[in-house]
Structures are given as structure tokens and as C-alpha cells.
Design a protein around this nucleic acid. Structure first.
Length: 410
RNA sequence: GCGGGUAUCGUCAAGUGGUCAAGACCUCGGAUUGUGGUUCCGAUAUGCAUGGGUUCGAAUCCCAUUACCCGCCCCA
């Protein structure tokens, strides 16, 4: 038997309602804020992700689905910010009135060991806002994330934010960290030594106990907790927080939050839930003011986030399956077919028994699947009527073919 | 890449070396030729992830493989 591949899943009819809910809630919330949906291809040039996501990241280094076709190196998208930025540049969106506000949803691919809340093909929904460097833009996208989650009935979430500063002040921070960690290099794990050269900030994210212990040292804590960011960045960050407070969005400052993608600067944030197991982040994002330029476009500030829809799905309550409005019971297949069509054309969902089974079987099926049974047997056909039976109350009425539709209520 | 766990019908499962592999749900058929969802009867794994081995005898013991789940790493 051929099975679905490791880390992939079928989304079955009985669980599709939640997915439709996640999609329509996104459409509703983002449209109100004038964010437009964009759909970009599922594969892109490998180089887009190498340059966009960053070659110090695990995503690019070991998790990409890359293949060759006609001497081109292509990669299944591991995330969608790079793709959206590519589209923004390619279609000259920088000449549109700014800011340009976009949202997307769709499958992403990362070659990792699957576990709870993590698959190889998974889905993200996200927003990207281009062309505004204002702190109100940061607050707007965080606000949208919160409103979106609220719309799905999620209210008790932990929002963590931090500022990584701009390239200039981050440089200073990076140097300070390298300086203070230098004496401990030997004690740090292999990954940390790799990060030390490539991306020192990520060292603080290390989960290895022996590394964590080193970070607790006083002189290192002083660097971590010290205000390394410049006045401008600090002011930006203050403003973001001011707006969040004004919107009554509760948040926590987490100075060790750095995020795993290279393109972030200034504001970064994550939204977590305790009900997710060890993969507890449902949303992650931040500002990426240099990415558009890195990928060959004009210098354009931007900010955005992405949510993992599988994780989201495990947090929202199951939506019960909808019953059909009507089930037509008849021994005359042609007559049943025509009546079903009449019902459907008048806005009802309707079905009949294709196999023309016995009356009893048909009623049985009707009771299981529909709210009303519409009976059209010989007697009804002769008198040009139908019998409409409410399957919840068992009440039924024989009524003319011109009026029966009024008796069926959705 | 590293570590732990699990594999018996569509689903949930019982079974721990000795005739036919429990049971429940679902599905299908019948009791009931025009009145259901609660009743009763019946059907449904020559098969226990796959391949070897031990044994008179294996779903049960051993070995290998595969798949899935969980954790680390990383991320949404």
C-alpha cells in the first residue's frame, strides 16, 4: 500500500471545517485592515531562500527540499516571506501607494524529523506589510495577529516581544557578545561555536544546558540585559509598546528572543500557547527592513509574521459537521433527481438515494444526514404534493409542490 | 543528525507459545412491501507491519527491515 509520505498528512472531510474557518477568519480580519491576499508559487529558485532566509539558518542549511530541473536549482518554499518579497519586487509594487499590505496562506516544506506540531509539509498563514518604517506598522501587524487569534476563539496566549536593534547597534551588540563569550568558547557546544562566527545572537537561543549555564554568568547577563540598542531603535521600540498598550494587547518583553531567520531587525515577536506540547510557538514574526534590498529591490522597510496552521488547528475547538437541509425520499429516481435539483436551485443542500433502496432504508439515511425528509412517493406524485418531515421533531405535513419550499427552514 | 516508544479488521481494541484470532463502534443485509435515529438477528481479519529464525506448534520468543508516534536540535 502506498502511504502518505513521512511528515505529510491528508486533511480529511471531517476536519476540513476548521481549515475553512481558519481561512475565512483570515480573509475577514485582514480584509478589514485592507490587507490583500497574494498567492505565490510553491517552488522558487533555491537562491531566493539562500539569500533571503539566510545561509546561517538551519532552514537553508539542512531543511530545504531542493531539486534540479533543466539545470536550474529549485526549492519547495520553506516559508513565504522571501517569495512574497520576490513578487513585490518583480511586479514593481514599490511604485504602488505605500504601504503595501499583503496576506497569504498555503503549504510550506521543511525536511525535519516530524513530531507533535511539526510536519514536513505544513501550512502557514501570514501577513507582510511593506513600505512603512513606522512603529505603528509593527503594532498593526501584531494587532492583526491578536485579532485573528481572537476571531478563532483563542484568548489566553502569551505574546513576547523584543528589539534586535538596527544593523549598526546590532553590530555593537554582536561584538559585545563575542567579546564576553570568547573565554568560554571551549565550553560551548558545537552549534554555538558555529553560530559564534555566523550569527552570534543566536547563541543566546541555545537550549543545551551547559551553554545555558554559561549564559547565567554575571558578566554575560549584563551584556544580554544591557541596553545595547541605539536611541532611535529604542524610541521605535518604545512606540511599538505604547501602541500595544493603547490597544490593550498584553505582552512580555523577552530579551533573549532572537528568532531563527537572519532577516529580522528591530521588532521581533512570538505568540505561544501552553497547550501545544514542546513546539509551543503558534506565531512568529518581526521587522525586516533590509530584505527587499537584499533581494534586489529598492530599500523598503517591512514587517510581518507567520502562523503555523496545524498548530492553530490543534488549539481551536472542533466544529461539528453540518446536516443537509433535505433528503428526498422516492422510488422514482427521475422524480427524486428533479426535486433535488429544485431544492438546490432554491438555496438548499439536498441529496437523494441513488440506488433507489426501500422506503425504510431511505428514511434511515435521511435521519442520519438531513434535517428534513422530503417524501415523494406514488401518493404524492398523484396528488402533486410532497410530504415534508422534520426529522428532529418527527412532525410532517403534506403540502403542494408550489408551497413546500416554505416549510423547509435552514 | 541523536535518543525513547508503538505496530492485531475502516476505527477503538482483547489476546503474553497449544483446537475456529474476543468484544465494541462504523458499514452492509434482514426482521418490518410507505415512516427513521432506542430493539432483535445476521455478514465482515485463512489474517496479527514486512522478511527471516527458534519450536511438534508463534499474533505471542529472537533477529533484521519498514512505517508511525514522542523528545532533542530547529521552527510556525
Amino acid at each position: 500500500m502506498i502511504q502518505a509520505q513521512k511528515g505529510t498528512k491528508d486533511i480529511l472531510p471531517q476536519e476540513i471545517a476548521n481549515w475553512q474557518k481558519m481561512e475565512s477568519a483570515g480573509y475577514e480580519i485582514f480584509s478589514k485592515a485592507n490587507f490583500k491576499e497574494i498567492r505565490t508559487p510553491i517552488f522558487e529558485a533555491t537562491e531566493l531562500f539562500a539569500r533571503g532566509v539566510g545561509d546561517s539558518t538551519d532552514i537553508v542549511n539542512k531543511e530545504m527540499y531542493t531539486f534540479e530541473k533543466s539545470e536550474r536549482s529549485l526549492t519547495l518554499r520553506p516559508e513565504n516571506t522571501a517569495g512574497v518579497v520576490r513578487a513585490y519586487i518583480e511586479h514593481g509594487f514599490h511604485r504602488l501607494p505605500q504601504p503595501v499590505k499583503l496576506w497569504y496562506k498555503g503549504p510550506m516544506f521543511r525536511y525535519e524529523r516530524p513530531q507533535a506540531g511539526r510536519q514536513r509539509q505544513f501550512h502557514q498563514i501570514g501577513v507582510e506589510m511593506f513600505g512603512s518604517a513606522e512603529p505603528s506598522a509593527d503594532a498593526e501587524v501584531i494587532n492583526l495577529a491578536v485579532k485573528y487569534l481572537n476571531k478563532l476563539g483563542l484568548n489566553d496566549l502569551e505574546i513576547e516581544i523584543n528589539s534586535l536593534g538596527c544593523p549598526e547597534c546590532r553590530k555593537k551588540y554582536r561584538e559585545a557578545i563575542k567579546e564576553v563569550l570568547k573565554p568560554h568558547l571551549q565550553e560551548l557546544c558545537e552549534d554555538c561555536n558555529f553560530r559564534y562566527e555566523k550569527n552570534p545572537l543566536r547563541i543566546l537561543d541555545c537550549k543545551v544546558d551547559s551553554c545555558k549555564k554559561i549564559f547565567e554568568k554575571e558578566e554575560i547577563q549584563k551584556v544580554i540585559l544591557g541596553d545595547f540598542i541605539c536611541e532611535e531603535c529604542k524610541e521605535h521600540f518604545e512606540k511599538v509598546q505604547e501602541y500595544l498598550r493603547a490597544l490593550n494587547i498584553p505582552y512580555k518583553r523577552n530579551k533573549q528572543l532572537v528568532r531563527g531567520l537572519d532577516y529580522y531587525n528591530r521588532t521581533v515577536f512570538e505568540i505561544k500557547s501552553n497547550n501545544l506540547g514542546s513546539q509551543n510557538a503558534v506565531c512568529g514574526g518581526g521587522r525586516y527592513d533590509s530584505l527587499v534590498e537584499t533581494l534586489g529591490g529598492p530599500s523598503t522597510p517591512a514587517v510581518g509574521w507567520a502562523m503555523g496552521m496545524e498548530r492553530l488547528n490543534s488549539l481551536i475547538s472542533k466544529t461539528p459537521e453540518q446536516k443537509l437541509n433535505a433528503f428526498v425520499i422516492s422510488e422514482d429516481t427521475t422524480a427524486a433527481f428533479k426535486l433535488v435539483e429544485e431544492l438546490r436551485e432554491n438555496g438548499f443542500s439536498a441529496e437523494f438515494d441513488y440506488a433507489n433502496k426501500k422506503f425504510k432504508k431511505q428514511l434511515d439515511k435521511a435521519a442520519k444526514t438531513a434535517k428534513y425528509a422530503v417524501i415523494l412517493m406514488d401518493d404524492e406524485i398523484k396528488s402533486n404534493t410532497v410530504t415534508v418531515k422534520n426529522l428532529d421533531t418527527s412532525q410532517q405535513v403534506n403540502i403542494s409542490r408550489t408551497e413546500y419550499l416554505n416549510y423547509i427552514k435552514i
